[in-house]
Simulated assay, not measured.
Amino acid sequence: MVGRKVQLIKSIVFCAAVPPRSIHLRVTKETVDEGQNNDVVCSGAGAGPLSVNILLEVEPLVAGRDARFMCEVRGSNPPPSIKWFRNAKQLPLESSMIRHSGNISTSVLVLDIVEADHGTKLTCRAENPLLPAATLEDIYTLDVAYKPNVSLSLGWSLKSPELKEGNDAFFECRVDANPPPYKGLELEHNVREGILVSESTLALQRVNRKQSGAYQCKASNVEGDALSNPVNISIKCEFDEPNSHAIV
């Protein structure tokens, strides 16, 4: 049996020759190399890995900060080869540190977290060098916190920022943030004044010349505050007045 692999299909135990130790196994179902109900002896035993787990040392993940991930592998003999993948793309081996202690192996990976990592799948794969079929892996989906990204634009019905008194003006505020932004507006909903505010839109009904100026929207979450780009509107009237500046 020296130098041969025996795969026990029913018990999902793998055995390979690794001198000088020996292990006795009872075959309970036909194996790849042997017949049924035979006593199998391997000179030395290669087994596992039995489990693979990714652990995050500090939570939550925040854009702009480093994060340390530890992959813990148990029950591999000989010690496993440990590889990291980011969205199925293997990371350089030198980007992690591997330690072996008894039947536990650990690999520590440090990543510089950015917004684009949100939703990324991080994989730790453990391979027994003698038993490729015994490969196990764990997958961790990154949940990255980042401050809002905000943009403001005129509503689809407006072809030009040039308006006449009595027209309606519409603005749409787009926000990308994790976690979602707090709800808070500095320009309140006021039907009587013709100011209609929803979660992401602002409507100014029957505008007048005093409402000319630059408009911005603001969003906040636990990671910070952000202002959008300014959008200017000009209300045509007989007399010009200084522009105002509103934040919604």
Rank of each mutant, 00 (worst) to 15 (best):
V207K: 07
A16C: 07
T141I: 11
A145Q: 13
K83G: 12
L154G: 00
L185R: 15
V6K: 00
R192K: 13
L142C: 05
V144E: 09
S51G: 11
V73D: 01
P242K: 05
V2C: 09
N167F: 10
V52G: 03
P148L: 04
K210A: 13
K183E: 14
D143I: 08
E188K: 15
A116I: 02
R68A: 12
E162Q: 12
P49T: 08
I235L: 02
N167R: 05
S95P: 00
E241D: 07
G75K: 00
A133D: 11
A67V: 04
F69Y: 07
L91P: 04
D138H: 11
D240Q: 07
Q90Y: 08
E165N: 02
N128L: 07
E223V: 05
K29L: 11
R4T: 09
S101D: 10
Q36I: 15
S234W: 10
A134Q: 01
K147T: 04
A63D: 06
A47R: 03
K183T: 15
P148R: 11
A134D: 00
R86A: 11
V52W: 08
D39E: 15
S22L: 14
H189S: 08
G102V: 06
Q90F: 09
K236F: 07
L185M: 12
A17E: 15
L25H: 13
L122I: 04
H24W: 11
N53P: 00
